Amino acid sequence: MKTVRKLFLAGGILALLAYVGGRIHRKVSFRPAPSIRQTQAEEGVPVEVVRIEPASFATFISATGRVVSEEEASVSAKYGGRILSFPKEIGDTVAKGETLATLDTLQLEIQREQALSQVAVAQRTAAQAKAEMDDAAKDVGRMERLFAEKVISEKEVERARLRYDSAVQRHEAAQAQVKAAQDAVRLVEQAIEESVITAPFSGIIGSKLASVGEVVPAGRPILTLANLAKLTCAVNLPENDLPRVRPGQDATVVFDAFPGKEFTASVLRIAGTPNPDTRLFEAHLRLRERPAGLRPGLFVKATIVTRRSAGVLAVPEQALVSQEGTTAVFTVKEGKARLTPVAIGEKSDGKVEIRSGLASGEFVVISGREMLTEGISVRVRKAENGL
């Protein structure tokens, strides 16, 4: 029995010693896990870099607008009347001289008949006055011969001459009446002729401003016409973009009506004053190649190249760091991150022009810069050669 107790006592002591020894071993061998900063300092912060080289650099302005015609007309009836027909519809193309509308000429034709009757009356009156004038002239001649023969007095000759002068005046007045009546006929005939309203130039009908059967006064527009040969793209610019835009600059244009296609253009001119409602300035772009089906009113998206330079150093915008009002980038030199102040210029297409602070061939961090500090070790995970 004593032997058994001794064995149990010895086993308990051994177990206690094993437990205490294990605790002591764990305390002695435990080490805390290193922090992220410690790991980065030892292994280097993983970054992506780009090697900058001189390259071409362009800046752009984006604008929207619509297609317009340089030659648009509001076609009107010169003499007025009731509209009989519109042979063409909105959106139809017409050639110069083609009929756009016709007006009722019934009243004009009645006026022409009346005017022709007045001409006939005036001509008969003029013929009678001519005969009277001729008779008076013969009478003057006869009186002058009799006076020369001393048959009549000089006073009778003077009376004959006065009768002749009166006949001449009546004849001239009758001739003027004939001319006035003929002019009236010509005016009515011109009105009849112009009751057929024709296109002043080839183009497309944009809108109708009157209906068949409507009586329109002289000079009132009845439809609009746009010249398809003189189409431009009118885009809207805010005033702060004006100093950067000038005639002759290149541009690209896209239309919703022609998806997937891009067209080249150039700046033709810029409006001198803004639109009073939008306060935007209108710039006209001339297309170098005009797509088939282009017409006024189509929506336009344009990109104007305001500057194009060669040999420019540029970095992606995400490479920039702003610290205490200073713009800088992180460069990588001998495995270390170096905070390098830079002077920047214009931005374009996700890139920023570097005017000073960097040299060609330097490596600039474009990803991972959030974890960088001056002098920290870096591990280049990915490098891009050039932008």
Rank of each mutant, 00 (worst) to 15 (best):
V20M: 08
V28R: 13
A314Y: 06
S69T: 04
G248E: 06
L14Q: 07
T326E: 14
L223F: 09
V300I: 03
S360V: 02
Q123I: 02
S56Y: 12
R163M: 12
R5M: 14
G386S: 03
A101K: 01
I61V: 15
T252E: 15
V300N: 08
P291W: 00
A41C: 06
A180F: 09
V168D: 05
V4E: 14
L231H: 06
F57Y: 06
K347D: 07
P200D: 13
E132F: 07
A77H: 03
A199L: 01
G219M: 01
I61R: 04
V185A: 12
F8S: 13
V94T: 01
V178A: 09
E189S: 12
G345T: 04
P341Q: 04
E334R: 03
S117P: 05
S74W: 10
G81E: 01
Q111D: 15
Y19G: 14
I376H: 08
S207W: 06
E172K: 09
K96G: 08
P243M: 03
L228Y: 02
A127R: 04
E144N: 10
A314G: 05
I152L: 10
F30K: 01
R26H: 10
K382Q: 15
P243S: 07
E334M: 10
A310C: 04
Q249F: 03
A292S: 12
R5G: 13
G335W: 04
S117F: 12
P274I: 00
L228N: 07
E289H: 07
T373G: 13
G91L: 00
A257N: 09
A137M: 11
L237R: 00
P291F: 00
A131S: 13
R286M: 11
Q177S: 13
Q323H: 12
V49P: 04
L106W: 12
Q182H: 08
L294S: 01
G375M: 03
F299S: 10
L100V: 03
F363C: 10
Q111A: 14
T102A: 10
V380K: 00
L339P: 05
R163Y: 09
T373M: 11
L108A: 08
V352A: 05
A181H: 01
E289T: 08
E346V: 11
V188P: 05
R112W: 00
D139V: 07
F147H: 09
I376F: 08
G91C: 06
K150W: 11
E374F: 13
D250C: 07
V305T: 15
D104G: 06
L372P: 00
A383N: 04
M143P: 02
V378E: 01
F8R: 09
V196I: 14
